[in-house]
Design a protein around this nucleic acid. Sequence first.
DNA 1: CTAACGTTTGTCCATTCGGTCAAATTTCAA
DNA 2: TTGAAATTTGACCGAATGGACAAACGTTAG
Lengths: 210, 210
Amino acid sequence: MEGSAKRPRTRIQSEKRDVILDAALDIFSANGFRGSTVDQIAEAAGMSKPNLLYYFRGKEDIHESLIKQLLDTWLAPLREMDEQGDPMTEIRSYIRRKLEMARDFPRESRLFANEILQGAPRTMPILEEELKPLVDEKAAVIRDWSRAGRIAKVDPWHLIFSIWATTQHYADFDVQVRTVLGPDRGGDGRFEDAARFLEQLYLDGLRVRN
Amino acid sequence: MEGSAKRPRTRIQSEKRDVILDAALDIFSANGFRGSTVDQIAEAAGMSKPNLLYYFRGKEDIHESLIKQLLDTWLAPLREMDEQGDPMTEIRSYIRRKLEMARDFPRESRLFANEILQGAPRTMPILEEELKPLVDEKAAVIRDWSRAGRIAKVDPWHLIFSIWATTQHYADFDVQVRTVLGPDRGGDGRFEDAARFLEQLYLDGLRVRN
DNA sequence: CTAACGTTTGTCCATTCGGTCAAATTTCAA
DNA sequence: TTGAAATTTGACCGAATGGACAAACGTTAG
């Protein structure tokens, strides 16, 4: 009667679960849920399919674990936005952190994008219970900054959306971005260029006009 | 020896192809390529699978037709951006048109997003041959505006990316947007709110600073 | 050493999916 | 009206896929 203690117990279980989740992130983010096969994941994880299914109940189980693990990391930058800090500094830091995540964790971004694009069939509850409250809270903070005249008067929700969109774009639409920029401008420097552009756009776009 | 004249000939062929493409747009945009089945498309189109395959060679063929048909519509707003016009007016119009497309043609946006997310396996040639040249051309226009001091000095490519990202976000991440905004703010008015926010952001963000 | 437990895999199964085919039905020009 | 061409469909096929299972293999505590 010890509830449902499903966490890994042995050393091997813990290690193998991590290997599987990493492999699954590769596959799911590149092919979407339905476009990915358990065989692909197993091969990427360096084990047989039945072996993989020894550690996870099934394909959905793996995906669910990934999504749950993802959202904490994903929302961290927004959580860090500090009501007590300087508004422009806080917003600039938020943009920079989100852009760094697009650069350093593109797989996570694409996994999430895939899920939302398909109508969030497996993620809707988390959006309502975790994402919405957090955004509401931070939107209120931005609204207060706005009312206090510390940044321009803008719609906080759409400001947040625009920051999500512009930063995640570099992960989700990476192929397009690199194709359009070409070999020269599309190298590693594209993230610095993007950072410069976005900083300027939001710095001037949110500055209080006199 | 009349080449490969594959266009529909009879009235029925023309009509049925349209019906199929519309149904396929529903299914593909909602489930992605691999997540969609020919049976689903056939049912949505109100016909049997073999009947559908009488009009198209196969699943890939339908998808290819959709993508080709899509890109013309999709790039039209950027094509309309006029070098001779007033820079701020042109950019504002471009943003408005892109946002209207996100509102009126969300299926097209999601179809495209799905394709790019998966690494554009079926679209890469079109990106290189159609999209890149067009963006290069318009980026040069914006760069000239920028150099002439008619808008702020910004990276033209990343400006275009940010406009794509912010506008398409309302189609591609619609579920998330509506969930976060909630029933009140997430109604039909969300596009007007977005338009107001984006106009202000880019108006001030691109204004020449003195 | 060895029994018990944890781990791994070959094999198999039911279902789904993209696609084929021949036969049946409908359309339409002469 | 009529017959040839266009259209539609039920039945079927091979491959892919998610998953089950029992047997085999490893590990380790006593």
